[in-house]
Computed example of a mutant assay.
Amino acid sequence: MNDKPAGWYYVGDGALRYRDDYGWTEYYMDAKDPRAQDWPPPQPKTLLQQLREEEAARSVASGARHGARVWSPFRRAHRARH
């Protein structure tokens, strides 16, 4: 259908835009982004999955570092008795 294959294309002003098999998508990337240096950059779904994995790892690391507890409505609060 389209004359161009799916992938990232430079659209001006230092921006890349992703085109899939159906046409232009809403996904943009700064051409100076480190992920754009390895040509071609990953597909948007791969970038989103990597972002989710990084956020999950960061939240686990911050919870372990601060001794955070997961809040539960079924757990009793422990209060000091005087």
Score class of each variant (00 low, 15 high):
P5C: 09
W39R: 13
S62H: 11
R35L: 15
D30S: 14
R69V: 04
D30Q: 10
H82P: 14
R19T: 01
R76A: 15
M29T: 03
L47F: 03
A31N: 06
H82Q: 08
A77Y: 07
L51G: 02
W8F: 07
R35G: 05
A77C: 04
R65M: 06
A36N: 11
R65Q: 09
P34D: 13
R17T: 01
P40T: 05
G23P: 02
V70W: 01
H78P: 00
W24H: 00
K32D: 15
R58N: 10
R81V: 14
V11M: 01
A36E: 10
R65G: 03
A64S: 05
K45G: 01
S59R: 14
A36G: 10
G23C: 01
S72I: 06
P42T: 07
L47W: 01
L47P: 00
G14L: 02
R76N: 13
S59T: 13
P41E: 06
V60D: 05
Y18F: 15
V11K: 07
E55H: 11
W39Y: 05
R76K: 12
Q50H: 10
L47Q: 02
E54Y: 03
D13L: 07
A61N: 11
G7V: 07
V60M: 05
N2R: 14
Q43L: 04
G14Q: 02
A56K: 15
Q43G: 05
P42Q: 05
G12Q: 10
E53K: 13
G14A: 06
F74M: 10
S72D: 15
A77N: 12
W71C: 09
D30G: 10
E53T: 13
D3M: 13
R81Y: 06
A64E: 11
R17P: 01
H66I: 01
H82Y: 10
Y9D: 08
A36R: 01
R69F: 04
K4S: 05
T46M: 02
M29W: 02
L16Q: 09
D33L: 02
R52W: 08
H82T: 09
D21W: 06
R17M: 09
E55D: 06
D21P: 01
A56G: 03
E26I: 03
H66Y: 08
V70S: 06
R52A: 15
Y10V: 10
R75F: 09
R35D: 12
E55C: 06
P41Y: 11
R76D: 08
A64K: 08
A56C: 07
G12D: 12
